[in-house]
Design a binder for these strands. Structure first.
Lengths: 301, 301
DNA sequence: GCAGGTTCATAGGCATAGCCTATCACGGTC
DNA sequence: GACCGTGATAGGCTATGCCTATGAACCTGC
């Protein structure tokens, strides 16, 4: 049985006439005769009572056409729904973002994304890198904004913008007198985020690896870390986009001599079919952040 | 688009694997690949995210499969429903019956019909011949029990049994003294049914055509006519099956010398596809009424 | 690092299902 | 009795759907 056959069935039942039904279906009358006959043979039921005047639906036919109509309309609903989803730049788009980026990036890019991609229903999801990668692989995210290189051939990524790190110092800190700070000089009293944050590893690496790491202190989030620095517990590196929040907390910011920083990338599954959406989102973010490195560095002086 | 394609779609979505879905569908994996690809081209939407491990349904696919499942189950419902209706001896059977026959025949044949054709849902419809023919032609009846010859080539009929007429007399009527009555002797004071009843015309014809017809009196139904005869207003002819009711009313019955009577037939549209049901119903009625003519004539003495 | 086993995609060949035109058979009508 | 209408049938063509065989990408384990 075939959807076409069901359409034929409905047409003949409606017109009670093979010829007119055939015209309505855009086929010849013999085609309809043969197909209806096949349908009748398949079902073992006579569907129409033919006479020289008309083709009247039988009792059996009348009981079937409800189902037939349901099948045909469901099939049409499929095509209609598909038509609405044909634009890859429309529909739900679940975007993972790391916690050291989300609160500072999202306010900047929400409006531009909404304007450039009005049909895209952006659903941000904040979590640490490893959790995001897991969700990405599980098809629970469509893409993720990360500050690490992609891992594994099943994922691909595109760099969006470079974000410099800045030295964050309590105002009374001796290094605050300098206009530019060498990363390794921070190592002695540097504070870092809790395990799992990529920013923690990058901070450690930029500062020489064997840094004191602030003893027993562990900040679970970047705002907490900023509060700790402002309270004089130590120093840290912050990503450039967090400069505004850091200054609001009363922290002194200084550029770094070795230009430590991180590159924010958008990552997705290599086989993800809506690559166009990924690239459009990336493009909007990248163009909004264009030249951010220079601007942020300048503003931090 | 095709129901088969939708089945393939559902299979792949369920197994998330082309090979296993192909096995489930009983086709080869390339077949499935090609058909799903065609479906995707038709819809303009990627349905599955293929990787070397799995084939994961996309967001779009997940939104479509509801409709797809609806279409497939509707199609299966059609086949299931058709299977239940494959037996022509099952389902609704609308049988028209003339008023001078219905109340006397139905009590006799209801039980045998129920027993012989348990799946047939008999729906009797009592009306005069012309109305029955109209409804029959309008497909509002499946068959009709009539006492006239079929009219028109679009209808066919089969005789079921011969029903003799009996002379019905008030007990005090002069003719009641005879053991057999000549039809034309009844003509002088005969009463007949209202226009439209075939029994009226047959009575008139049997009695010579120019009968007095009881002046202004007109009985709308056979029970009324019997009451009128019993009250002494005149005589009439009754069909044999009504003998019991006539005797209960206190009427004297006598056989007719010219053996006037009528033949009860079952009529249906020549193209009606459930001829088997018609013939089965006719067969049950005929066998129940077999030998009725003799029995009734004997009982009426 | 390479062989072997996955995955899905592609190619070529074949059978057939579905379509068309032409024609038939049957009824009803003028 | 010729003629228009109905649906059914026949023959031929095309396109579709299927198969097997093979390819390309990827993963795994020795």
């Amino acid at each position: 049985m075939n959807l076409r056959d069901l359409r034929y069935l409905l047409a003949v039942a409606e017109h009670e006439h093979f010829g007119r039904a055939a015209k309505a279906c855009g086929v010849s009358q013999p085609t309809l005769s043969v197909q209806i006959r096949k349908l009748e043979d398949l079902m073992g039921v006579t569907l129409f009572e033919r006479s020289s005047k008309t083709a009247a639906p039988t009792e059996a036919c009348l009981r079937l056409i409800g189902h037939a109509r349901a099948a045909v309309t469901a099939a049409e609903a499929i095509l209609a729904t598909a038509r609405n989803m044909r634009d890859p730049l429309s529909g739900r788009f679940r975007l993972g973002i790391i916690p050291t980026l989300a609160p500072y990036l999202l306010p900047l890019v929400f409006a531009p994304l909404r304007q450039a991609l009005p049909a895209l229903e952006l659903e941000p999801w904040e979590d640490q890198t490893s959790a995001l990668l897991e969700r990405l692989r599980a098809h629970e995210l469509d893409a993720a904004l990360l500050a690490t290189e992609e891992d594994g051939p099943d994922l691909v990524s595109l760099p969006l913008f470079a974000e410099p790190f800045l030295a964050a110092l309590p105002p009374e800190h001796p290094l605050a007198a300098r206009s530019m700070i060498l990363e390794t000089d921070l190592a002695r009293d540097i504070l870092v985020l809790a395990d799992g944050h990529c920013l923690r590893d990058q901070t450690v690496e930029a500062c020489g690896g064997d840094a004191g790491l602030g003893g027993p202190l562990r900040a679970a989030s970047l705002p907490t870390l900023l509060n700790m620095v402002a309270a004089g517990y130590g120093t840290t590196l912050i990503p450039g986009l967090a400069a505004g929040a850091a200054q609001d907390a009363g922290i002194v910011l200084r550029p770094l001599s070795a230009k430590a920083g991180r590159t924010v990338r958008i990552a997705w599954r290599a086989h993800f079919p809506r690559r166009a959406a990924v690239e459009a989102v990336g493009e909007v973010i990248a163009s909004r952040l264009k030249g951010f490195a220079e601007g942020a560095a300048a503003g931090a002086v």
